[in-house]
């Protein structure tokens, strides 16, 4: 049981987070909720990328006064570097989406995408 949890909790959790976000993007009608679902998917993908580079009982990739040489076991630093930039971009793109939502609300005074004329779903 403990072994199963250790092996699958991070992968399973991040995949479920991606799927919850996907379900939200498809079914919700409120534009802010759609953007929240996109943020959830983003977090799920980042969590999965970092989990793929994890090595059991290894150190964080930083040399310090405790881990003094590079012969010690480290986790993979490349996914961490990629995720670092991905989080910042994710927030900026969400801001762009929210700016569009504010403008759409100014024009149609509603957040419900099914009530906006010209869009059907």
């Amino acid at each position: 049981m403990l072994n199963f949890l250790e092996e699958w909790s991070f992968f399973g959790g991040s995949i479920l987070l991606i799927l919850i976000g996907l379900y939200g993007v498809i079914t919700r009608k409120n534009m802010i909720k759609i953007l929240i679902s996109l943020a959830l998917m983003d977090t799920g993908v980042n969590l999965m990328l970092v989990a793929l580079g994890y090595v059991k009982a290894a150190n964080a990739p930083i040399l310090n006064s405790v881990v003094q040489t590079n012969t010690a076991a480290f986790v993979d630093p490349i996914p961490q570097a990629l995720v670092l930039t991905s989080i910042v971009i994710g927030t900026a793109v969400l801001g762009l989406g929210l700016a569009l939502v504010i403008k759409i609300y100014d024009k149609f005074s509603t957040l419900d995408i099914s009530k906006i004329r010209g869009l059907k779903w």
Binding site: V50, Y54, A60, I87, V88, G90
Partner: peptide
């Protein structure tokens, strides 16, 4: 917090400050 458990302190700081 989970990023910290995965030995990624840099990502944990970014996620806490930005995310």
């Amino acid at each position: 917090v989970l990023f910290y458990f995965l030995k990624a302190p840099d990502v944990a700081m970014t996620e806490a400050a930005i995310g």
